[in-house]
Computed example of a mutant assay.
Amino acid sequence: MVTPTQLPPSRLQRQLSLLSAHLVVALVALVGIGGATRVMEAGLACPDWPLCYGSLLPRRQMNLQVFLEWFHRLDAFLVGVAVLVLFGASLLQRRGLPAWLPWLGGATLVLVAGQGALGALTVTQLLPSGIVSAHLITALTLVALASGIHQGLAAPAEFPADAVAGPIEPSELLRPSVDGAPFWWGWLSGCALTAVLGQCLLGGLMASQWAAGRCFGSGEACGWLLAHRLGANPAAVLVLALPLVALLPGWPRRQLPLALFAGALVALQVLLGIASLRLSLAVPVVTVAHQLTAALLVAVLAALTARGLRRPPLSVFNPLELA
């Protein structure tokens, strides 16, 4: 039995890592553009689907609202192509890639297909609240999944297929991950990620029903606004716990930059939420920045979760020892 060593990623793995990084950026942009489309009431600017006014590029009808909806669909199409390439490569070259990649790539492809179907329903069913909210939370789930995939591909290559690791013992929970954090760090990050996704779902339900505007204007639907504000507290506490824990003496500092970034994002998110309410949602750029920051926060928390859950095997079987 020998101690495992980390191997540098293969060329293909580096290329797919770069593709997944671009995919994260495209998905975060997709969420931001979707927020702008909703705020500008451009969700039905293109009355048909998947074309817009029966054309790939509706030049004659083009205005700001049509552009937002058209560009939102274009970004979604490019995301679909990137995911298809990622999944295809993970299948065709699976022997030289991490074993988990085809599974996560397939799950991402299924989510993208479902996201496309939800996008079509938002137009054909005239923006029903439930479908619009499902459209948002699916997009954020894709952000998290793509971010986790990128972290896995950017890491050193997996250990050889003859690696032998026994079942997880309780003592292994304290064994550092590949990135130098104890095993429970991934679960803490995962809890923060789940809380933020739940908060985003509440925000999506509130926004899709225009609950904030109705509450300010006529005192209706204020329950959604209250639920969103109350849900922000536990989510913020969990996220802010990450940089505080990472600052404890004796901790490796590899997790600290991302943890600090997550803390900064949640602080910015709270400030943007307060500003949007103080401004009665009258400044679209603040509302869109609020949703864009949420997408960035999901990506960072998913990266921290993936790093924390990635553990090396206890040992590697060396066939030369039998010679």
Rank of each mutant, 00 (worst) to 15 (best):
M1H: 03
S10R: 13
R14H: 08
L19T: 12
S20Y: 11
L23S: 07
V24I: 15
V28N: 08
A29G: 12
A29W: 09
V39L: 13
A45Q: 02
P50M: 06
C52Y: 05
S55N: 05
L56E: 03
P58W: 08
Q65N: 09
Q65H: 12
V66W: 14
V66Q: 04
L68N: 03
F71K: 04
L74H: 10
L74C: 05
A76V: 06
F77S: 15
F77Q: 14
L78I: 13
V79G: 12
A82Q: 10
L84Q: 08
G88Y: 00
G88I: 03
A89G: 06
S90Q: 11
L91P: 12
Q93K: 14
L97H: 06
L97A: 03
P98N: 01
L109H: 04
A117E: 06
V123I: 13
P128G: 12
G130R: 14
I131K: 15
A134H: 05
L136Y: 12
T138S: 15
A139N: 05
T141C: 06
T141Y: 00
T141Q: 09
T141E: 10
L142D: 02
S147W: 01
G148H: 06
G148Y: 01
L153E: 11
A157T: 03
A163W: 06
V164P: 14
A165M: 11
P170T: 09
V178T: 02
D179N: 05
G180S: 01
A181L: 13
P182H: 07
F183E: 04
W184N: 07
G186S: 00
A195F: 10
L197R: 00
G203V: 04
W210H: 12
W224E: 13
V237Q: 12
V237T: 13
L240M: 14
L240P: 12
L242A: 11
V245H: 15
V245E: 08
A246T: 05
L247I: 03
P249H: 02
Q255F: 13
A259F: 05
V266F: 10
V266W: 12
L268A: 10
L268D: 03
Q269I: 02
V270A: 08
V270M: 13
G273V: 00
A275V: 06
A275L: 04
S280Y: 11
L281Y: 14
A282M: 06
H290R: 00
L292M: 09
T293C: 03
A294L: 00
L296T: 06
L301Y: 04
A306D: 05
A306G: 06
R307F: 08
R310D: 05
R310Q: 02
P313F: 00
L314D: 04
S315Q: 10
L320E: 11
L322C: 04
A323F: 08
A323L: 11
